[in-house]
């Protein structure tokens, strides 16, 4: 067995020590280099887009993404947020932002409430169709929405839910990820708590609201972040289900940005498009950065 790390350098041979230190240092340097390159790799496209959003359209049309800063920043963002389009003028950055927030919050809250209830039933009750219900919910993990998109669209349209928030949000909830997340967590809650609650004479409702929900706070916060980001970032479903301009979300608006890039009837609005792209990215990114520890906890514990 040989001893080889900085931890336990034998005091004797200094030459070896120096050599080793040098090696360790070089290795650390390489580690940092890889990490810096990695961070740049992740950061660079977004930074360039952000910078370009301060230029005018011609700059992009002539020479692509810009590295630097120009004077069109406020104008582009103002136009992205407040310039209306459409006959009714129903579509601007603000309305899309509002819709995105409704989708993000509505989806996250709806999903948490519904899946907590279902998980509570599955974990804390003995009833006849427990196994059956479990499998009914479980199978939804098999088929992503993308695969059954066409019939889902028909069903929602058939129910008259096209261009409604209900039609936008509820079908997205029909997947069991949240239920499994809470099921996992509830099963880790010490049994003594239930026993104690029962001795105190607490019924299922009281136990749920007074004990289980407060206990799940961190988990709720974690799931909320993940689900908010997931809802906010939905693209295909909103693209199909909202044809009414007043219902467009920011991510759905990406489609219009791309269309304006390729529209040949007038000068494409590249940089306003990039401004809107930045606005689209910002809220979920900020949430993930600021609530990092919750988010990581939620992510790594929900899917295991």
């Amino acid at each position: 067995m040989t001893v080889t790390d900085t931890f336990s350098t034998p005091p004797a041979v200094t030459a070896v020590k120096v050599k080793k230190r040098f090696r360790v240092k070089r290795e650390t340097l390489i580690d940092h280099l890889i990490l810096v390159l990695g961070a740049l790799f992740m950061l660079f496209p977004v930074v360039l887009t952000f910078m370009t959003s301060s230029y005018d359209n011609l700059a992009f049309a002539k020479s692509g993404l810009q590295f630097g800063w120009s004077d069109q920043f406020f104008e582009n963002y103002e136009r992205a947020m407040f310039e209306t389009s459409g006959f009714t003028g129903a579509i601007d950055g603000v309305s899309m932002l509002t819709n995105s927030l409704i989708l993000g919050f509505g989806f996250a809250i709806g999903k948490i409430v519904i899946s907590m209830m279902a998980a509570y039933a599955i974990v804390y009750f003995r009833f006849r169709f427990a196994t059956l219900s479990f499998w009914i919910i479980f199978t939804t993990l098999l088929l992503p929405l993308e695969v059954r998109i066409l019939p889902s669209y028909e069903v929602v349209q058939g129910l008259g839910l096209g261009n409604t928030y209900t039609g936008l949000i509820v079908p997205l909830i029909a997947s069991a990820t949240g239920t499994f997340f809470f099921r996992q967590f509830f099963r880790s809650v010490p049994e003594e708590l239930v026993e104690a609650a029962r001795i105190d004479g607490a019924g299922p409702v009281k136990f749920f609201i007074d004990i289980l929900v407060p206990l799940s706070k961190t988990m709720i916060a974690a799931l909320f972040i993940i689900m908010f980001v997931y809802g906010w970032n939905q693209y295909l479903w909103p693209t199909l289900i909202t044809t009414d301009e007043g219902m467009f979300t920011l991510v759905r608006g990406i489609k219009n940005i791309i269309q304006s890039f390729t529209d040949s009837s007038s000068v494409p609005e590249f940089t306003v498009g990039f401004a809107l792209t930045t606005i689209t990215m910002l809220p979920p990114v900020l949430i993930v950065i600021f609530f990092q520890s919750w988010f990581v906890k939620g992510l790594t514990e929900s899917d295991k």
Binding site: S85, G86, F87, T88, Y153, E154, Q157, G158, G160, G162, T243, D244, E245, K255, N256, Q259
Partner: peptide
């Protein structure tokens, strides 16, 4: 008038809305 996207999207939206009676 309501803008419905590309030609293909407008047609799809029109067909779907017809099936839904809207």
């Amino acid at each position: 008038p309501v803008f419905k996207g590309t030609y293909e999207e407008a047609l799809t939206a029109g067909i779907a809305s017809f099936r839904a009676g809207e």
